[in-house]
């Protein structure tokens, strides 16, 4: 087998293993709940029968590993269980399927994240590469100081400053990003402007700094000096000698920051009351709606793992040492 393929398969297996362990950890969440949580969910007035029925529904009368496989099996078929909220002590069950809660919101979150990525990734790469090329210049120092400050700010600070200026003082964009399933595309983009801008600012700062460091590291290689000593033009040195070796570091930077974006989304959604999965998770944490929390955590973790896996695989595929084995 070609070494690239075997290494890729190894990474894939490793990724799946990680996902497996992560799912166990998330599943254990419900195991770690204090014993009386059924009471807490159903209310103090719940009768013993309701509690017993609820416990049965959760499968608490079965051993943990069986419940784990039931849960994972369900998840693989798109069934994340039933929400805790909407249960009443009387035994009346108005709870909803977790999938129905998550579905539309996941789409919203992906829209926001995608919109941010489309703006942020090219911008950050451009800034990072130019700053690295003109290292030490005024431009480099200015970009550096700005981004160092930006990464030190909490997301909600950036968000509220934007709201203050662009939402409140000069109302250009709406400060509340309320969208629904039937909001038209451009209307959606307009309403998401401030959240996307917030995320972009934060992500670009991180990503630009990492890109700059990666490129500087690359440009210090002896083969780049050699290329210069061959009298090649700066463009040629960058495009032909630096770029083919830059994919791996750059892709890793992108993946890292997209993964970070997924997390940043949580805070930003709350600030702008954006109906996404992040806000759903925060609400579920406050109401201790464990099935929803589990589902959200699993989705976030899986995305994070998959993005990193993808970056790994791209680094492998672009590595000349692996592509052309001895």
């Amino acid at each position: 087998m070609h070494p690239v393929v075997s290494i890729m398969l190894q990474r894939l297996a490793l990724g799946l293993m990680t996902l497996f362990f992560v799912s166990i950890i998330i599943f254990m969440a419900i195991e770690m709940l204090p014993g009386d949580f059924t009471q807490a969910v159903l209310g103090q007035a719940a009768t013993e029968e309701t509690v017993a029925a609820f416990r049965r529904e959760l499968g608490l009368d079965q051993p943990a590993y069986i419940r784990y496989f039931d849960w994972v099996g369900g998840v693989l078929q798109g069934d994340f269980g039933t929400s805790f909220s909407g249960r009443a002590s009387s035994g009346v069950d108005r709870s909803r399927e977790v999938v129905d809660l998550i579905g539309p919101r996941l789409a919203n979150t992906l829209f926001l994240a995608g919109m941010t990525a489309v703006i942020a990734v090219p911008l950050a790469l451009l800034l990072g590469i130019t700053a690295a090329l003109w290292r030490g210049s005024l431009y480099d120092r200015a970009v550096n100081a700005t981004t160092l400050s930006t990464i030190s700010m909490p997301e909600f600070f950036v968000a509220y400053i934007l709201i203050l200026f662009l939402g409140s003082l000069y109302p250009v964009f709406p400060s509340l990003a309320n969208v629904s399933a039937d909001t038209p595309f451009w209307e959606r983009v307009y309403r998401c402007a401030l959240p996307a801008m917030t995320l972009t600012l934060v992500i670009v700062a991180h990503m630009m700094r990492m890109t700059r460091a990666a490129i500087i590291n690359l440009l210090a290689s002896p083969y780049i000096e050699m290329a210069r000593l061959k009298g090649l033009s700066a463009t040629r040195v960058i495009l032909f000698h630096a770029l083919p070796n830059a994919w791996a570091p750059i892709v890793n930077v992108i993946a890292f920051n997209l993964a970070y974006l997924i997390v940043g989304v949580v805070v930003v959604e709350v600030v702008f009351v954006y109906p996404g999965i992040g806000q759903l998770m925060v609400d579920a944490v406050t109401t201790r709606d464990i099935p929803v929390v589990q589902a959200c955590a699993l989705i976030f973790a899986a995305t994070y793992i998959l993005l990193n896996l993808l970056a790994d695989i791209i680094s492998i595929v672009t590595n000349p040492r692996l592509l052309h084995p001895r």
Partner: peptide, 14 residues
């Protein structure tokens, strides 16, 4: 120019 470490001075990608 001929560099000390040829292994480092040749670009691995070409």
């Amino acid at each position: 120019y001929v560099a000390q470490s040829a292994a480092a001075a040749f670009n691995p990608a070409h």
